[in-house]
């Protein structure tokens, strides 16, 4: 992958992580919640989610300035790992909370189970696919260079 293309992707993903990170921090500090379409700025530990997203955004963006090819890519992988931790834990939480039922029922009804997955979701969930593609590209390129 050309360096310019890679830098462009880093800036795109970096901004996509940085902006919601800042918003999550701002909403925590002002004590407000906000939903925009399927993206929700609410829930437990929002401050810490904001910190992690903000930091991962900064990592993607500062990676652009690394002259070392490996360090640039490693920093992008680190930022992606941080997004996966936040997004992954949210997915786990949604899955686990969709199983038990309420009102005297041990397990959730089929309708209740599926409605748990209708959103809205925290911003990190939406960053999962793009960060995953980025990491796959990075390791794919490393394998190609080794081969």
């Amino acid at each position: 992958m050309k360096q310019k293309t890679f830098n462009f992707i880093l800036i795109l993903v970096g901004a996509s992580a940085l902006i919601p990170g800042i918003l999550e921090l701002l909403f925590t500090l002002t004590g407000k919640t906000f939903t925009w379409g399927e993206i929700a700025f609410q829930g437990e530990f929002m401050f810490w989610r904001g910190v992690v997203l903000l930091a991962s955004g900064v990592f993607y963006l500062t990676a652009v300035y690394h002259t070392s090819r490996t360090e640039k890519r490693a920093q992008a992988v680190l930022a992606s790992l941080m997004i996966w931790i936040v997004g992954g834990m949210e997915i786990l939480s949604v899955i686990l909370s969709s199983i038990p039922g309420d009102g005297g029922r041990w397990f959730n009804s089929t309708q209740g189970f599926f409605s748990s997955y209708t959103g809205p979701f925290i911003p990190a969930i939406f960053l999962l696919p793009i960060s995953l593609v980025l990491v796959l590209l990075i390791f794919g390129e490393e394998r190609k260079n080794e081969g």
Binding site: E44, F45, W48, R49, V51, V52, A55, S56, V58, F59, L78, L81, M82, I85, V86, G88, M89, E90, L92, S93, L96, S97, I99, P100
Partner: peptide, 24 residues
Amino acid sequence: PFAIAILYGFWAFFNAFAGFFTDG
């Protein structure tokens, strides 16, 4: 920041897992 992400993951997992069994 990575350590903060790990600790966040730690508590989020703790909450989700323990909440699933205890409350559920």
